[in-house]
């Protein structure tokens, strides 16, 4: 039985400053017993990947509301892989159309995409299941 708390990096890559969702999710995950690190705003993909490595996280949650998700997500995925973090769970939240979400999932850039209105329990449940199922 692994007693280590699940470690999650909540990251705001790109230029948009809409941090309501990131903060609510960060707090929800912490209240659900996870270890949460929040990057703060306006991070480059390199900064996100570097923090993920330094903090040795199990999950990276990207919050993007500027429409740049199709550029930023693959770049971060690649940088995580370059850091040897092949099995880190990569989640995306924000203003993402169904079509874009499907493409991110299909290309393997994201493990799951959450859009406005998702309950916190669904996100924490998804993370628990994915990490503990390993």
């Amino acid at each position: 039985m692994n007693s280590r708390k699940i470690r999650v990096l909540v990251a705001k890559p790109g230029l948009d400053g809409h941090d309501r969702g990131a903060k609510v999710v960060a707090r929800g995950l912490r209240d659900a017993g996870m270890e949460v690190i929040y990057t703060g705003l306006h991070q480059t993909p390199e900064q996100v990947a570097e923090t993920a490595l330094q903090e040795d996280v199990d999950v990276v949650g990207l919050s993007i509301l500027s429409g740049a998700h199709m550029t930023l997500t693959p770049r971060i995925k690649k940088l995580l892989q370059k850091n040897g973090m092949n099995d880190v769970l990569l989640l995306v939240g924000g203003i993402v159309s169904e079509e874009d979400a499907a493409e991110l999932l299909k290309s393997g850039c994201a493990d799951q995409v959450f859009t406005p209105g998702e309950p916190l329990d669904k996100i924490t449940g998804y993370i628990r299941e994915a990490i503990n199922g390993r």
Partner: peptide, 23 residues
């Protein structure tokens, strides 16, 4: 305006990649 304009970057700045004309 798009995010690069809002944040004071030109469209050819590296921080603008993927954000030009998006929102």
């Amino acid at each position: 305006f798009d995010m690069p304009t809002i944040m004071g970057y030109d469209s050819d700045h590296e921080r603008s990649l993927g954000e030009v004309g998006r929102c």
